[in-house]
């Protein structure tokens, strides 16, 4: 029995990262709601800090050290990590993978972690909420929880890059060229999924801080493909992708002179609607592009 199995009954340590609690609270609100209803227990670890991703460009080892610190905190609490941000998921997953396969690295990082009273043995498993929904909660339980089928709605899925890649670090959970878990989850609510050119293209968020116009141009390409095909909304699973497509959509429309008006929902908001939650319980008032038409289609005024 792996360490991970032995604590199956333990709650997951909910890893929020930096962006969600400060800027994208609707993702957190909806995620907690659906997780609770589906019987996923979540615990908050107050000492969690940055996952390390933003400093990997400056110093890859320092980034691993910050990731290892969070892993050590989860291990001390006896919990596996459930993350909401795909960049955090990627950073923590890559670090967990390396720390498990490279004992020399683990010893070296532990020497630094000792300075803050921590030590990591390598037992924590990191997964994104969407992966846990697909892999652990599963089709049967999710379909049983759907009380308001989303028949007639068309969602354009956007997989965050770090949910899938590097595939090796994620244990080859998905084929990054043909992912399906988010499509499956959307289908389990009764809605249809849109297959579209550029479906796997990055949101551009990774270069927003270095070259805003370039980043917004990358996002524009995807919004254009989705708007043309008249999807009711984009559905995504990462706060940074959301900042690109929802928060910055008006700016993209202004800079490039192209109107889109495409609502952007986090998958837990979509699932929450299907599970019968009201829009306000899912933080839908915080979505920048309001999904009015979409809600009307499923009988919510």
């Amino acid at each position: 029995m792996s360490a991970s199995d032995s604590r199956r009954a333990r709650p997951y340590a909910l890893y929020l990262g930096c962006t969600i609690p400060a800027r994208v609270q609707h993702f957190e609100i909806a995620s907690r709601k659906v997780a609770e209803r589906l019987g996923l227990q979540l615990a908050d670890v107050a000492e969690f800090a940055c996952c390390g991703y933003p400093i990997a460009s400056l110093d890859a080892r320092a980034a691993k050290l910050l990731a290892a610190r969070n892993l050590a905190l989860a291990e001390r609490a006896g919990c596996d990590i459930l993350a909401l941000c795909t960049a955090c998921t990627g950073s923590l997953t890559e670090a967990a993978h390396e720390l498990q396969t490279d004992p020399a690295l683990r010893d070296s990082l532990n020497a630094d972690l000792a300075a803050v009273g921590l030590r990591y043995e390598g037992s924590v498993r990191v997964r994104h909420l969407v992966r846990v929904l697909w892999e652990e909660v599963g089709r049967e339980k999710i379909q049983a929880a759907v009380v308001r089928r989303l028949d007639g709605l068309l969602f354009a899925p956007h997989y965050g890059c770090h949910y899938l890649k590097p595939a090796e670090a994620h244990g080859d959970f998905e084929d990054p060229e043909a992912p399906h878990t988010l499509d499956d989850l959307i289908a389990w609510t009764g809605a249809r999924t849109l297959d579209y050119p550029g479906k796997l293209r990055c949101c551009g968020g990774g270069v927003l801080a270095t070259d805003e116009k370039l980043a917004l141009g990358i996002s524009r390409n995807k919004l254009r493909e989705i708007a043309r095909r008249r999807a009711d909304a984009v559905t995504l699973i990462c706060p940074f992708c959301n900042i690109m497509y929802d928060t910055n959509q008006k700016k993209i429309e202004t800079i490039f002179g192209e109107p889109f008006g495409v609502p952007v929902l986090f998958f837990p908001q979509v699932l929450g609607l299907a599970m019968g939650f009201e829009p306000r319980e899912l933080g839908l008032s915080m979505n920048r592009v309001q999904p009015k038409a979409l809600l009307e289609k499923i009988g919510i005024k």
């Binding site: 460009s57 400056l58 890649k165 590097p166 595939a167 990055c202 990774g206």
Partner: peptide, 28 residues
Amino acid sequence: WLCAGCYTCQERCPQGVRVAEVMRALRN
């Protein structure tokens, strides 16, 4: 500094070059 870090190149490289990690190493 313009790599978005999406790993598309790294997953596709037929020679197994870890392109995104090389970009990170160059920044470091």
